[in-house]
Design a protein around this nucleic acid. Structure first.
Length: 399
DNA sequence: TCTGGGGTCCTAGGACCC
DNA sequence: TCTGGGGTCCTAGGACCC
């Protein structure tokens, strides 16, 4: 296999940076985005703006993004707003404006595509780019073996800035796994190019959880086993890792720690599922809040239906998800006798799923999910869908 | 006063079929 | 009375990511 060059490009503090574009007077201040009921800035009579600050926020919600000034105070994404308020009461709080972020997202991706067209979408603020076949990618000068890659990266970064006014960080390595780590090494506005030769110096000292795919659970277990850094993970006996984590994950851990990753840059993927969920303002109970819940549930089904229609999909499985007051999650799903898209059908099947849920506990979230998707124009002829897989009388009896 | 909303992938048991 | 294996589908839960 010939060597590859894969870039990972990550927008710097994306949502917060977009907000700073329209509220430049906030530059330099700690700013966080999040909270469904956060207040819009108000314009005073003298033309200056007044902003909501964290200390005034009451209710549910987490930080979606924060500026680097806020992060310095310990306020980063995922943190509950109430906890964040304790750390940084004077930080400015702005509501999320996803339409605006999506607009900038499209713009930055389009500008990168003009430099390098083989792009894998990884959400609203990051992409992988395959640079392998780009002219000049392997150009070197006497003082810089990566002069060609550096030039490509500079053109991408300049294009992103021109298209959006925003900065991004880029990592370039032989694969996605290493590039993802590399793009984070020099944030913000960074550029890091490295190969396997630099791993011992630059990658192995990092904590194991910096590897994409080692989350809170795995890293806690690794730590318990005395493995803290990627280097320690690389030094671990692969057989021992398999014993601890199972064949698949154990083997993957070993390979990841050695920077081995053959995954291709995938330029298009069909969606596997589409879902809608919402967390309530306060916990609700199936009995005492029946009508409120019913209204929310119906609305979610309608939203899901219009999402399916807009994207051109039908679904053959429908599922519901509940999150209870203790944060435990319960899901139920059904494979349907036919493909559905309309809100009434979704609501009917989702209702059946709901009937099979335990409903004693208070709930904080409800969600509806459509799976086993099929493009509208590729639906099987009616009659081909076959007989119902389940005797629905079963559920009536179960109540 | 904890903890959003949208996804993907993996595992594992049971049903069912050959 | 004891005893197959393999393959696929369905379902629930859980880890992880942005």
């Amino acid at each position: 296999m010939s060597a590859r060059w894969i870039a990972h490009l990550d927008m710097d503090a994306f949502y917060a940076s977009v907000e700073l574009l329209r509220y430049p007077d906030l530059r330099g201040r700690p700013v966080v985005v999040g909270g469904r009921r956060a207040h819009q800035p108000e314009v005073r009579e003298d033309g200056t703006r007044s902003y909501a600050v964290l200390r005034d926020y009451a209710g549910r919600g987490v930080i979606t993004t924060s500026t680097y000034e806020a992060r310095a105070l310990g306020v980063h994404s995922g943190l509950g707003l109430m906890k964040a308020a304790a750390l940084a009461p004077d930080a400015v709080l702005l509501p999320a404006d996803f339409d605006e972020y999506r607009l900038h997202s499209r713009n930055f991706k389009a500008s990168v595509a003009e430099v390098a067209p083989v792009i894998e979408d990884r959400g609203i603020d990051e992409i992988y780019i395959d640079l392998t076949d780009l002219p000049g990618a392997n150009d070197a000068t006497p003082d810089d073996p990566y002069a060609g890659l550096r030039d490509i990266a500079r053109r991408m970064k300049a294009g992103v800035r021109e298209a959006t006014g925003l900065s991004c960080s880029v990592g370039i390595t032989p694969n996605k796994l290493l590039s993802k780590i590399a793009s984070d090494l020099d944030k913000p506005d960074g550029l890091t190019i490295l190969t396997h030769a630099e791993m011992p110096g630059r990658i192995w000292p990092l904590p194991a959880k910096r590897i994409n795919g080692i989350g809170p659970k795995a890293s806690a277990k690794l730590e318990m086993l005395g493995v803290r850094t990627i280097g320690e993970l690389a030094a671990a006996d692969p057989q021992w890792l398999i014993e601890q984590f199972g064949a698949n994950y154990g083997q993957w851990l070993h390979r990841a720690a050695h920077g081995i990753d053959e995954r291709e840059v995938v330029t298009y993927r069909e969606p596997k599922s589409i879902s809608r969920e919402t967390t309530f303002e306060r916990d609700l109970h199936a009995r005492t809040d029946r009508e409120t819940l019913g209204g929310i549930f119906t609305k979610l089904c309608e939203q899901l239906s219009s999402d399916l229609a807009r994207k051109g999909y039908y679904a053959k499985t429908i599922g519901v998800k509940l999150r209870f007051d203790d944060f435990k999650i319960s899901t139920r799903e059904l494979t349907l006798p036919e493909y559905v898209q309309d809100a009434q059908s979704i609501r009917r099947w989702a209702g059946l799923c709901l009937k099979r849920q335990p409903l004693e506990q208070r709930m904080r979230l409800i969600g509806v999910r459509a799976g086993s998707l099929c493009k509208s124009d590729a639906l099987p002829e009616s009659g081909e869908t076959g007989a119902p897989q389940l005797d629905l009388g079963l559920f009536d009896a179960a109540g």
